[in-house]
Amino acid sequence: MDDYLVSVVSNIGIISFVALSAYLLLLTGEISFGQQAFFAIGAYAAGIATAMWGWPLPLAIAWGAAAGAACAVTLGIPTLRLRGLQFAIATLAFAEMVRILFELWRYQIDIDGEPVGPNGTDGFRNIRYVFDHNIEAFDFMMLIYAVLAVTLGSFMLLERSRLGVIFRMIGEDATLASLQGIAVARYKVFAAGIAGALAAVGGGLYAHLTTYVEPRTFDVMLGVHSLAYGLIGGLGTALGPLLGVVIDVGLLESVRLFAGYRMIIFGGLVALLLIVRPRGLLDERLVHGIGRLFRNAKSGTTRTGRGPP
């Protein structure tokens, strides 16, 4: 693989974490414009841990995820009773506050005669872990995808588990769910916590991939994009948001023909797609249809005795 492909594929992997984070909240019926905040928290926390405290990368990423989850739960509790647009705007306000706080925050220590650490609007440079440990770009890409594969695997398990059913049920109708005896508030905060951790894992990996972060990376654009990916790719399965990211970053990235017209074409296509498929390419109906196809094929064989002799 050439360098360029590796970097594009790595980016797709990392953005997928934020997209999955927004998707998880969508499952529980909440629209968040603010998942970029946890991406930022994960990036800064993990970056500080390796570059300033000398922690190993896995520990740093885990610590970033914990920080992201803690902040998400802290945000989740006061915003619990907000619905729809009010929740969306509250998360937006929170994320922008986080971004501005990072713009104001300076925390640097001296390492080898050079100041290292977050430096306000100049960002946080010199997160040099991959260079200090001689990790090749390709290996780092594999690391991203290993973590992503585990995440996706657990999403698949989640979709089949009772927890997944509860999440979707709350998303469909929270009142009905609570009438069924489900502790809606607790599950919502729980979902928010996992979503925060997911975005933070993405952020931690991002900081080490690019070796620098700066506050404006984490503005509203990232949040709205990650929400859009789920809608484009489909809300029926966790592969949906991934498909959305691949379509946006991958496909358009590789098709250079459009150069200056890229967003004109892409924006129009997305708008048209949403008219035809308002819940995305891989929506619930399609996913269930495919599932039924498989089950029918299996039961069809046993019932009629057809199939290979």
């Binding site: 629209i31 859009a228 924006g267 129009g268 997305v270 949403l274 008219i275």
Partner: peptide
């Protein structure tokens, strides 16, 4: 929500 995301896509276009 599809309308909202769609209006975001058109934002990028504009």
């Amino acid at each position: 929500i599809a309308s909202m995301v769609s209006s975001f896509a058109i934002w990028m276009q504009l």
